[in-house]
Amino acid sequence: MHRIYIAPMYVGFLAWLLAILALTTPVAGQLTEERADRFWWDAGLGFTSVQVTCRLCTGDIDSGPSIDLAVGTWASPRVAVGVELGGWTHLESDVRERVLRAGLSGRFTPSLESGLHFIGGLGWMGYRAEDFHYSTVNVVVGAGWELPVSSGWSVGNRLVFDAAPFGTLKNDGVSVPGGSVRTGALRLSVYVAPR
């Protein structure tokens, strides 16, 4: 039986994100070919649920706040590439868990008339809880929606899934027997970005 903890603030946050998705309609001309020459960046805050499984793992789904930063350039009007950094934290039984991510990220916008875009990436994920830690390759897939809110800024949200299947859990550098870990994380976040 997995334990899922959802603080009331997170429930409100999720409701807000869903409202944004529901209210957002395709915006003609939002995304123009001008951006093909521009760099882009965004910064997001969100809520992430992480599950780590291994032979000895509890398999609990732990949830906590997360932060994301990304910067890159437009390879074409529909395709953005860049690098992404992110972090997540959760307090479990007085033990602070932290996950850091870094990697290459790509975004594909199917229609310039819509804020919808798809996200893919490949990078590194590191987990630490006091003396216990692992690092692994991380695969990212997801989707988002971006909405202009002023002439200079956009607000967006994204739902992204991280899959990191090849970790080896270590205790202060020593491998833990039965510690071949697989990590799945579901990130829901809202971000701001210059237009």
Binding site: V95, D131, F132, L169, N171, G179
Partner: peptide, 12 residues
């Protein structure tokens, strides 16, 4: 208890 911090992840 699994080392320092291991109990956040592991169940022994």
């Amino acid at each position: 208890r699994v080392g320092d911090g291991g109990s956040a992840l592991l169940s022994v």
